[in-house]
Structure formats: structure tokens, C-alpha cells
Design a protein around this nucleic acid. Structure first.
Length: 792
RNA sequence: GGGCCUGUAGUGGAAUGGUUAACACGUCUGCCUUACACGCAGAAGACUCGGAGUUCGAUCCUCCGCGGGCCCACCA
């Protein structure tokens, strides 16, 4: 055992574990039960953040615990490579490039990011089997994603259709919702006159320039003002007839309580369009100019069109009033221009109508904590339309389809063509018209990639043997905030592709907030970098912090206090272990040594049994916080603070009976060995090093890792309620003596003339320990309520 | 607007339908006692957000209010 604990110790074992394949999944072992983990592939930003540290620590604890419980742990690690942020960074660095070249640059960039993050993971002592690393940008991964899409296409769950998407008319690009932000602006609410046989209807709109795309007028079903118009036709100021439809989502208090649905002014229009199967009118071109409108509007930009149409309608007497309106609009986060909804040809995955089976699948799995499933149920029950899976991006998985421009039909790629890449795909012709088919250039939404991770890690679809062994996976750990995406899509796709729910258990973690309770963000400058913490506090402290944070599906502020404490405990563990290590040097444990067990020995061994039971139960429930706390309490406040003081004389002095000396060593051996095993999942480095104290009892000299040692099992025979009861009294006596010395400004090792103890139980068995621990030259006992008379 | 979570000493946070509500950091007082000063022994510090209810009894259960967090929807 090294003299001092530090980064050198941690690095030494990290290397040793890698060299010895400590965390390898035992492919050939078909007997051990398998425990598989579908770990989150982090987005390859290049940096592990505190949220990663927390959540990855969490399931690393689970993996290590299960390994010690005799499971064959399958713990792969993947990388979610493809995404807009990478494209942005690569473009910033290299400028715009042709697609294939750009994709290569993105890949190189990503590889560098992965290298960095991987080394951070190793520093954190995470224990995946790196042989099973996967990258969503690799050809093999693309192949599996595309295979999954072809399969779902065969089941008609994947299809192409026209769908409104967020669109930036300045950048001429489709946007994901995450590319948008909100901006307040001053606008106007315009009250326009619609006419009908039953009278006029005044509707209020902030976007009169969309009037030509008006396809319906809606009002609230209980709004008496409009009840008589239900399902009647009204005429827009442009002379078009549309229907009046009652709808529960209309706010009768806003404007006039009647609104026009335009395809598309905002997202709600899209909802209504689907709800009532309304026609779609393209209102703008891709560069934001009016189309399909009245002559005087066509070709104008939205802002100009708005002015123009208001002027015109006012002149025609069709405007009742114009009032100011402050509103919040979605803008493109990069150019700050308002975003439009544009009809566009996209690929979809059928989701609508699938809620019941997804919820049923979710309910078939254990959610920890259980309330987290509500996030999924809420989401599943409010799905309004199908999942748009295509993105007009470069760095992504290509959709494996071709399109006939003539017949307007889609053709899936052949399985033999996978991985399909439109840039190099062979030319194919339309079976109907012989026209050359156009390979799809869009790429997949990144959730398409990541929603098959439990399948991919289990060898799907080629390796049936492995798949049977590894699927469904035992554990899916993930953040609550992506239940609606990662968990939702994964459950759905896994069910669709295999008919079976993908996990047995889900473990949900929350996020790490900055010490001020706010979200960590670059703009607030409150980010805490894990690397610096490791440098200063060491990995095993950071891991303890993660355990103590206990953020089960809840957000927790980062706390330096917990980290400081964790480091203190690490130090305590280290020093106590050094002491015990010296005490038991050359000691070979033997059951016969139990014959000499004394009262304090029986006590601490009894406490150890209940601790073992408690900690085991906590680990089963992923209550790492509780488990860690319990071990700390035992080790520090019972073993170190009392027990070690009771036995020291049996270690140091030569005049103690041999039986007593052996029993003390037996107890120390047992207590330390069990303690470090219980701590091993959380503090893998320190416990591994301390484990070397026990090297000789391991046998042949070839070093075995503590992480393959058997998890302790409580032994009921070692439980001793009587001893525990007596030690409560003895500890109390010691405490009183310590108070006496403190009050009298005596050194704690000062000798005392005598102790006269009155206790409700016969605790005279502890006389020697008491005398040694308190420095009392004489100790006497009497029966009665607890009291201590001290003479110095 | 909807959903979920949450409100406990200066700070971070346990726990419990019932005696003095953990523990840690910080603070204060002693002590460098042959594992550890990243330590040891003590001490101070909490009307457990406010209100109502259930109960013999609530910090814990219910409701209302106020506050915080996260997610989602919407702003015609």
C-alpha cells in the first residue's frame, strides 16, 4: 500500500485495470447471469460536464456492484456523434465545404472530441468494456440505423409526406425547434370583417398578410356569440369561403374570440390543420415572399405584405380596428429573424395512435424512481402528429431511400446496399417509368440514431445468439429531461422492431446545478469543470460526491461542502487502513480465532452485519446516497472513533493473552475487508489499493481485483444484540470521560485515577477496553442507572 | 396555461404520524493523544415557508396560498 493517496494511486490502478481487462464482459461464460447496461452515448462535444460525472458515476456504481454480486456485466459505451453543434463548429473553423468533404471534417473533429472525453471517463474510473464502444457516425452504425428504417418502412411505420417545418427564410434552411429561440416584439392585432348569410364575424389577427392562406375560422364551443355560426360558411375579406368550426383550444377572451386558421401562421395552425383535415395553402416561398395571394401581395416580403394588405383592407372598409399587441415570436437563434412554418417534404415515423402500446411497454418496465414514468405517459398522451425524422443536414445518417421525380414514388434501398450513402450510391431506375431515381439527401434526426442503442449493443440484427443473451437490457440509465425523446423513441422503436420492451429497469437521474442553484451555463459563467475537481480532490472523492448527491430524477446544486467532506473521508479511510494494515501484517485469519472474541469485537462485528444488510438493500434500490452514508457512519464513527481505541492496547502491547491478540486481529481483518468491499463501487481506486493489504490471504500471489471479489453477505450468527446494547453504554461512558477531560483541559490520553461506573447492565466485560481507552488506572462497576464518577 | 418535483440551522442536505429533528461544510472552545490536524474531544446554531384541515398528536397526510426548479404547450 502506498504511503500517501493521490492521483498517482488512481492512475496506477486505471492502467492496471486496462492492462488486466478487469472490466471485460465474459463472452465465453454462458453460466454467469448477465447484467447489461444501455448507457447513454454522450453527445461528442469534447468535454465531460458535471451532469455526465453525476449520472455516469451512478450507473458505474450499479455496474461495479453487480459485478461483485457475481453478474457478468455487459457495459458498453457509445458516442452520439452527429448533430448540428458539430456542423456549426466545423463550419466556423473551416468555412463551407462540399458535403462529402465537410462530412469528413466533421468526423475528424468528432474523433478528437471522443478521444478527449474518453480519457476523462477513464480518469473518472468508469468501468465500461471499451471493446464494445460504438459511434453513431460509423458505417456499421449507419447500417443498423438504416436497416431499422427499412424494416419499419416495410411495416409502413416510416413514410414520406408533406409536413410543416420551422424554416428560416433568410438562411433558407429547415430548423429544428432547438435552433429557435423566443424574442418579444411589438405588433398589432387587426380586427377584420368576415361576412356570412347570418351576419358578420369579426376576427382578430396579428398576421393579416396570411389572409390568403386562411382555411377556417375557429371559436370556442361555449362562446355564445358564435354558436349560430357553427359549421356555417363565412367569407374572408379576400372573398374566399371558409368554415366556422367550434374548437376547445380557442381562448374566447383573446381578441374577438374568433380566429382564422392559416396554413401556416403558427404551430397551433398545424395542429388544427391535422385535427380538421384542412387544406394547405402555401403562403410564402422559401425565401419568404408571398405566394398564392392577391396580385398586389405576391412577391412581397412578409413585413411589406402586412402593411400593404392593411392599407388595402382599410381602404375597402374591412378593418374594424387595429390595436397594439406585444407578443413573443420564435426566431432563428443565429440570425434572429422570425421563423416561418413551411410545408416541406419530409420523412416521418408513425407515432400518432401508438401511444397505448408505448405506454403499455413503458409500464412493463421498472422505473426508478417510479414517478418518472409520468413524464413518458404525459408525453405519449399528448402526441399531436408523427415524428419528423428527416433533417436537411450533412453530418448525419443518410435516409436509405430513393425517389422517382417522375412518378413521385419512394423506393427503399436494398439491404445489400447498406450502409447507404447517396453520394456514392449506384444509379437505379424507376421500375415504372425508367426514370433515374434520386437518392435521398436528407439525414436522420439524431434521435433516430440513438433510439436503437439497446438493439445495437445487443448485436441486433445479425447476432441472434448474443441478442438473446443481452436483450432486453437490464438497465437503462438516463436523465429525466430526455424521457420524452430518448426513452420514448427507444421504447417505441424497440417494440416495433422486436415486439419486446427494451429494458428491465430505467434509472432516472436529475441534473447538476451550479452552487447558486441555477443551471450551469457558459453565459452565466458558473460552470464547474470535472478535471479541476479531480486534480484537487481526487477521483474517489468526486465519485463520493456523486453518490452523496443522490440526485434521483431531481436536480441538485453542486456542493463543494460534500466534496470537501468526501476527501476527508477518503483520507480517514486511508489512514485507518494503514493502521489496520500494520496491525494485521502477517496475520492469517482463522475461524478458530473467534474463540477469543471480546465484547467490543462482538459489537463491531455485529454492527458490520447490519451494515452489510443495509448497504446491500440500498444498492439494490440504487440508493447510493444512503448506502454511502451508512458505510461512512460505520467506518468513521463506530470503527475508528471507538473500536480502534478499544483494541489498540491489544495490538501494541506484548502482555495481552495470545487469544485476545488474535481475536483483535481477526476482527480488524474482517471489519476492514468487508468495509472496503462495500465501498468498492463508489471508491474503486482507494479500495483497490487497500485491498493489497489482504494480498496474502488471496493465495497464489497473482493479484485479483477487489472488483471481482464477492460482495459481503451478512452472517446472522455474528449478530449480537446483547453486545450492541452493552457497547451503547460503554461508548457513553467513554464519551463522558472525554467530556470530563475536555472540561478540565486535560489531554485525551491523560491518565485517570479511577472510574466508578454505575450501569443498568453488567458491562464489566468491557473493563480492559475501558481502562485502555480512558487511561483509568482503576475501574469499578455497580448496578443502577447509568452514571460515571471520575477521579483524576 | 398544463404536468412533475420541491421549500428543513449561515450553507448543502437526511429522517420520522409521537421523547433533545440526523449528518456534513462553516462558526466557537479545548487538544499536535505512537493511523489520520484532510485529525480528535466538545459547544453554539432550526417556531422543519404561511394558513386551514385530518389526528389524542404533524416537519411528515389533505387542501389553499406564497416561493423555487424542470419539462411541455401556447401567445391567433
Amino acid at each position: 500500500m502506498e504511503d500517501k493517496y493521490g492521483r498517482n494511486v488512481e492512475e496506477k490502478w486505471q492502467k492496471w485495470w486496462a492492462d488486466n481487462g478487469t472490466y471485460k464482459f465474459q463472452d465465453a461464460d454462458l453460466i454467469k447471469p448477465v447484467y447489461s447496461i444501455d448507457t447513454p452515448p454522450p453527445f461528442t462535444s469534447g468535454d465531460l460536464h458535471m451532469g455526465h460525472v453525476l449520472s455516469y458515476s451512478y450507473f458505474d456504481f450499479a455496474a461495479r456492484y453487480k459485478r461483485m454480486r457475481g453478474f457478468n456485466v455487459y457495459y458498453p459505451q457509445g458516442w452520439d456523434c452527429q448533430g448540428f453543434p458539430t456542423e456549426v463548429k466545423v463550419e466556423q473553423k473551416y468555412g463551407r465545404k462540399p458535403p462529402e468533404e465537410f462530412r469528413k471534417l466533421c468526423q475528424e473533429w468528432t474523433v478528437a472530441c471522443i478521444d478527449k472525453m474518453k480519457s476523462q471517463m477513464i480518469q473518472m474510473g468508469f468501468s465500461p468494456d471499451w471493446r464494445y464502444e460504438y459511434r453513431t457516425m460509423s458505417p456499421e452504425y449507419h447500417k443498423k440505423v438504416q436497416y431499422s428504417l427499412l424494416k419499419m418502412h416495410e411495416k409502413e411505420l416510416v413514410f414520406r409526406g408533406k409536413h410543416p417545418v420551422f424554416w428560416c427564410t433568410k438562411c433558407m434552411s429547415a430548423l429544428a425547434k432547438s435552433d429557435t429561440e423566443e424574442a418579444p416584439r411589438q405588433s398589432t392585432l387587426n380586427h377584420l370583417i368576415f361576412t356570412s348569410a347570418k351576419g358578420d364575424v369579426i376576427i382578430a389577427t396579428s398576421r393579416p398578410e396570411l389572409l390568403h392562406a386562411c382555411v377556417a375560422v375557429l371559436f370556442h364551443p361555449e362562446d355564445k356569440r358564435y354558436a349560430k355560426f357553427a359549421n356555417e360558411a363565412v367569407t374572408t375579406p379576400l372573398g374566399k369561403q371558409v368554415k366556422m368550426i367550434p374548437d376547445r383550444d380557442v381562448d374566447p377572451t383573446f381578441g374577438t374570440g374568433a380566429l382564422m386558421v392559416c396554413t401556416f401562421g403558427d404551430k397551433m395552425d398545424v395542429v388544427w390543420m391535422y385535427r380538421y383535415n384542412l387544406p394547405i395553402i402555401e403562403a410564402f416561398t422559401q425565401d419568404g415572399k408571398v405566394i398564392n395571394g392577391p396580385e398586389y401581395l405576391n412577391g412581397l416580403k412578409a413585413e411589406d405584405a402586412k402593411k400593404k394588405i392593411i392599407e388595402t383592407l382599410q381602404a375597402e372598409g374591412k378593418v374594424v380596428k387595429i390595436e397594439p399587441l406585444s407578443q413573443v415570436v420564435k426566431v432563428h437563434d443565429r440570425c434572429k429573424r422570425p421563423v416561418e412554418l413551411m410545408l416541406s417534404s419530409q420523412w416521418f415515423c408513425k407515432i400518432k395512435g401508438k401511444s397505448d402500446e408505448i405506454i403499455a411497454g413503458a409500464k412493463a418496465m421498472r422505473w426508478v424512481p417510479d414517478f418518472a414514468i409520468s413524464h413518458l405517459i404525459d408525453w405519449a398522451t399528448t402526441v399531436e402528429w408523427d415524428w419528423v425524422i428527416s433533417r436537411q443536414r450533412v453530418f448525419g445518417t443518410p435516409l436509405p431511400f430513393r425517389h422517382c421525380p417522375q412518378c413521385n414514388k419512394d423506393y427503399p434501398a436494398d439491404y445489400s446496399e447498406l450502409p447507404f450513402n447517396p453520394a456514392v450510391a449506384q444509379e437505379k431506375k424507376c421500375p415504372d417509368c425508367n426514370e433515374i431515381l434520386v437518392p435521398e439527401k436528407s439525414t436522420c434526426d439524431c434521435w433516430v440514431d440513438s433510439s436503437i442503442t439497446p438493439l445495437v449493443i445487443a448485436g441486433w440484427p445479425d447476432d441472434e445468439e448474443r441478442f438473446k443473451r443481452l436483450y432486453p437490457v437490464s438497465l437503462r440509465p438516463q436523465g429525466v429531461e430526455i424521457v420524452r425523446t430518448w426513452a420514448f423513441y427507444t421504447i417505441y422503436r424497440s417494440l416495433a422492431l422486436t415486439g419486446k420492451p427494451p429494458f428491465k429497469e430505467l434509472l432516472l437521474n436529475g441534473n447538476v446545478l451550479a452552487p447558486d442553484g441555477k443551471k450551469m451555463s457558459k453565459s452565466l459563467g458558473n460552470i464547474i469543470a470535472p478535471d479541476q475537481l479531480i486534480e484537487k480532490y481526487y477521483t474517489d472523492s468526486v465519485r463520493q460526491w456523486a453518490a452523496l448527491s443522490g440526485a434521483m430524477a431531481k436536480d441538485r446544486p453542486f456542493s463543494y461542502q460534500d466534496l470537501t467532506y468526501s476527501k476527508s473521508f477518503l483520507n480517514k479511510l486511508w489512514n485507518a487502513s494503514k493502521f489496520i494494515g500494520t496491525a494485521i501484517t502477517g496475520y492469517v485469519p482463522d475461524e478458530s480465532h473467534k474463540a477469543g472474541l471480546e465484547l467490543p469485537d462482538k459489537w463491531i462485528l455485529s454492527r458490520l452485519q447490519s451494515l452489510t444488510t443495509q448497504v446491500t438493500e440500498d444498492f439494490e434500490n440504487y440508493e447510493f446516497h444512503h448506502a454511502t452514508k451508512a458505510i461512512h457512519q460505520f467506518f468513521w464513527n463506530e470503527l475508528c472513533d471507538y473500536y480502534l481505541e478499544y483494541v489498540k492496547y491489544r495490538i501494541y502491547r506484548d502482555d495481552v493473552p495470545k487469544e485476545s491478540a488474535l481475536a483483535a486481529r481477526y476482527t480488524l481483518h474482517m471489519a476492514l475487508l468487508a468495509s472496503i468491499k462495500l465501498l468498492a463501487p463508489v471508491m474503486p481506486h482507494a479500495t483497490e489499493e487497500i485491498y493489497s493489504i489482504f494480498a496474502e490471504s488471496v493465495g497464489d500471489g497473482s493479484r485479483r481485483s477487489i472488483h471481482h471479489a464477492a460482495w459481503p453477505v451478512a452472517d446472522a450468527k455474528m449478530s449480537d444484540a446483547a453486545a450492541e446494547k452493552k457497547l451503547v453504554l460503554i461508548n457513553e461512558v467513554v464519551s463522558q470521560v472525554r467530556q470530563f477531560k475536555s472540561a478540565n483541559k486535560l489531554a485525551l490520553n491523560a491518565e485517570l485515577a479511577s472510574l466508578a461506573i454505575t450501569a443498568p447492565e453488567d458491562i464489566s466485560e468491557g473493563k480492559a477496553a475501558l481502562a485502555a481507552c480512558t487511561g483509568a488506572k482503576a475501574v469499578s462497576f455497580a448496578q443502577g442507572d447509568l452514571s460515571v464518577k471520575i477521579k483524576n
